[in-house]
Nucleic acid binder design. Structure first.
Lengths: 225, 225
DNA sequence: TAGATTGTTAATCGATTAACAATC
DNA sequence: TAGATTGTTAATCGATTAACAATC
């Protein structure tokens, strides 16, 4: 039933595509018309075979000895990511992070258009942030279904994140981009993608601690100091 | 030479630890003293065996039939992540995202202490953000080495991110937490952890597009409408 | 004691990397 | 043509999941 025949693109590949796209556009801006996997791999510190496999998901074929035609490749990656169509999004949590995201011009490049923000704070409700209205969360479900907004962005404190997600689901939102440090529950038909800052920081702090420990070890066995 | 004998903890495990920690603290706050892997796995939607393996990296052993002693486990996870010591960090790019991060109280829980921000904008330099000074980037390398700040946070526009990273490295920063959508080059001895919003959005938009396509398919084969 | 849960070893799965024929 | 680069198949690697003995 759930037609998976299209066979899903691996998540690691999807996560690398924006990086490729950035680089491809940069090369294109330099006036070049083709690019090879080796060139891309060198620039991004990846394995050339991996780049080739990743790019294969776009359906674009390269020319041996030459490489890939840049305009076609850029277009294909953008299409695959859906970044050449605009998707409307609603944001819950008009705090400093929410405000920062609403002010980020770069999202236009990713086809993301935040049309309104929601909050519970009476001080914020009724105001505008970067030209978009701040409404009360009570209006969220209603407006989401009225606007057919497909994406919801959560920038609330962790404690309010689940409630925000529930309201979004009630409003028919199909994809949630969560920035709150919380493990949310959503129905199967809703896509949840979380930007887990603590997870990222965990990798950094643990590796950093290990590196600093190694420094000390080195100093000791050096006999210096 | 580069003593890897300690055998590094897998990145996926590291990324899950903060999630465990959050849940463990929650259970502890409910007055419980022990917790089983099944309980954790159920709550977080994970495999119990995976939870057991992940927790094994802390060195804490559980009691069959009972589970893990919460205070010991919480303590061990925090120690492993290094979150019970404070690390000083410098932030470059005092824009809205930088400001948001500086105002985020939750970082204290992760042992992260942002002591100063840096920018090139004369309007910002000299001001204070959430009680911390905003200095000119020219002072970055100098201050970093003087304060022995180990972590640098990049919240500049993509075009300035590499320069910020270079200054941090020059100042002796050993770990960089990058929020700019850019592929940075740093020396081997510097840990780079990037929060790639475009990568995260790529996963969300591609999956969402696939789900919406499926909806249409379903409607068509339904014959409804 | 009986049985739930741990810790660990083995099997599976999927992604990365290597090898190599095809081709421009 | 010669040889660089693609596309693809096979080998490797690492993480997840399953199986199961040990234990409280």
């Amino acid at each position: 039933m759930t037609a998976k025949e299209v066979q899903a693109i691996p998540v690691p590949t999807l996560r690398r595509l924006p990086s490729y796209l950035r680089f491809l556009k940069k090369v294109q801006a330099q006036g070049r018309d083709v690019v090879s996997c080796t060139h891309i791999a060198d620039a991004l510190g990846l394995d050339p075979t991996q780049v080739r496999k990743d790019l294969a998901v776009t359906g674009i074929v390269g020319k041996p000895r030459v490489g890939y035609h840049l305009p076609a490749l850029v277009e294909a990656v953008e299409t695959l990511l859906g970044w050449n169509n605009t998707t409307d999004a609603l944001l819950v949590g008009a705090g400093s992070l929410g405000t920062a995201l609403m002010g980020y011009e770069g999202f236009r490049e990713y086809g993301l258009n935040i049309v309104a923000a929601f909050d519970v704070d009476p001080e914020k409700v009724g105001a505008e942030i970067h030209g978009r209205p701040v409404l009360h969360v009570d209006q969220l479900a209603n407006l989401a279904s009225r606007l057919h907004a497909h994406i919801g962005i959560i920038t609330t404190p962790a404690a309010e994140a689940q409630r925000a997600a529930d309201l979004m689901v009630a409003g028919g939102v199909r994809g949630i981009w969560n920035f709150a440090p919380a493990d949310l529950e959503v129905p199967d038909e809703v896509i949840l993608e979380s930007v887990q800052l603590p997870a990222s920081l965990a990798v950094l702090s643990t590796r950093l601690a290990a590196a600093l420990r190694e420094d000390e070890q080195g100093e000791k066995s050096d006999g210096s100091q």
